[in-house]
Design a protein around this nucleic acid. Structure first.
Length: 399
DNA sequence: TGGTAACCTTC
DNA sequence: AAGGTTACC
């Protein structure tokens, strides 16, 4: 059976996998043998892309994972002249790796072939309803896989239209964004998103990634093993609410965040478990944020991260020291510079950007955020204007 | 409200 | 310091 990738159409301007999966929204995607590899919806994926298609392989999965349903998901208004792509896998097509030049560089991997026998798949929705799928040739599974990816990458949101509008509304966005196209907000699982960002406080991406992996290893079931690498699901809240979790996490190097994780897991269980957390998706932004801030280790910034990245609150703006720097460097003329980041200025900054960028302000923020990451600096095509360099040198000297 | 320090570990 | 939260003045 030939190793093959499945594919569906998607331009790099709509989704840049490399940027989107490495800009600090999520911490579990890693580039392995040329493909972005990670766990999503109970499956282990390899992702890659060409100029015109997203390519994917599922290299392992379990059957009893909840299917991401999306109650109350608001669809973005689209311009009437924008063609609507079919979003249920109708347009996808198989591309054999030896037929597509762009995949030639991908090393060969053992891939689970779809069985040609009749297959029975049991799926649980978030509401606990169990659905049984019988498929003749794996086609239904294939449709499910595309649905999972389309949901995770929120491909019904037309990113290029948003960029166009942000460029019109904000000269600085217009200047920065051309080298950083295709950066979109993921629609993450709230549990993984919340606990990952509790780990993020006073911390950097590489260490957060390590901590999250150790959390999965210690507290979740093994999903599968592929090419000697073991993949884990993200732990359930229940598992993190157990006895001795804080002590164990401290030994695993979580520092003071060990207590935050333990306390937050226990609090969520007291509220009724994961369904309570999922239900925050149905609340308005301010209310969902207020609930999240009650959790141990969750302040305004982490709450906004969760609102934006897993609660469908497209206008949430997490203001961290990084955004704080961007504001004071690139928007100070519009926003009066202040010394410290108080609750008041935090809110002012969010309101300012929401007014500037509109309802998807949080998405726009992530573009400028990524453009400021050190690891992406090489992507800036032309070096900084000389004037800017001189200015920044001057600043440093005057300190 | 604004300001400051402690909190864990590591690149 | 590093992409913060909490406690206390």
């Amino acid at each position: 059976m030939a190793t093959f990738w499945r594919a569906f159409p998607c331009s790099k301007a709509e989704l840049d996998l490399g940027l989107t999966l490495a800009c600090g929204q999520s911490f579990r995607w890693a580039k392995i043998q040329g493909a972005l590899t990670g766990v999503l919806a109970g499956r282990v994926w390899r992702l890659s892309q060409t100029d015109t298609h997203i390519l994917y392989q599922v290299i392992g999965h379990v059957d009893n994972q909840p299917l991401p349903s999306r109650p109350g998901r608001k669809k973005q208004k689209r311009k009437s002249n924008t063609p609507i792509e079919s979003n249920n896998g109708i347009v996808e097509k198989k591309i054999k790796s030896d037929e597509k030049a762009a995949t030639k560089e991908q090393p060969k991997m053992m891939t689970q072939a779809m069985t040609s026998n009749t297959k029975v798949t049991k799926i649980k929705t978030e509401d606990g309803e169990e659905i049984t799928l019988k498929t003749e040739d794996g086609l239904a599974e294939e449709n499910i896989e595309v649905s999972i990816l389309r949901d995770y990458f929120q491909l019904d949101v037309k990113l290029t239209d948003l960029y166009e509008q942000w460029c019109k509304d904000d000269p600085h966005f217009k200047q920065v964004s051309p080298n950083f196209t295709g950066i979109r907000m993921l629609r993450q699982d709230p549990v993984e998103n919340l606990f990952s960002f509790i780990c993020s406080s006073n911390n950097h991406i590489s260490r957060i990634s390590g901590m999250v992996e150790r959390l999965c290893e210690a507290y979740s079931a093994q999903l599968c093993e592929v090419c000697g690498v073991t993949y884990y699901a993200f732990p359930t809240v229940s598992a993190l609410a157990g006895k001795g979790v804080e002590e164990r996490l401290r030994k695993l190097g979580f520092g003071y965040r060990a207590r935050y994780i333990s306390e937050t897991a226990q609090y969520i269980m007291k509220q009724g478990g994961e369904s309570w957390l999922y239900n925050l998706r149905t609340l308005p932004y301010e209310e969902a944020k207020a609930e999240l801030i009650k959790l141990s280790g969750v302040g305004a910034k982490v709450a906004d991260c969760v609102c934006l990245m897993s609660m469908d609150k497209t206008g949430a703006i997490p203001v961290d020291t990084h955004v704080w720097q961007i504001v004071n460097r690139d928007y100070k003329h519009k926003l009066g510079t202040t010394k410290t980041l108080t609750d008041k200025t935090y809110k002012e900054i969010g309101d300012f950007f929401r007014q500037l960028w509109g309802p998807y302000a949080g998405w726009a923020h992530s573009v400028l955020f990524a453009a400021d990451l050190r690891k992406f600096q090489e992507l800036k095509s032309s070096p900084e204007k000389k004037g800017d360099i001189k200015k920044s040198m001057k600043k440093k000297k005057s300190r």
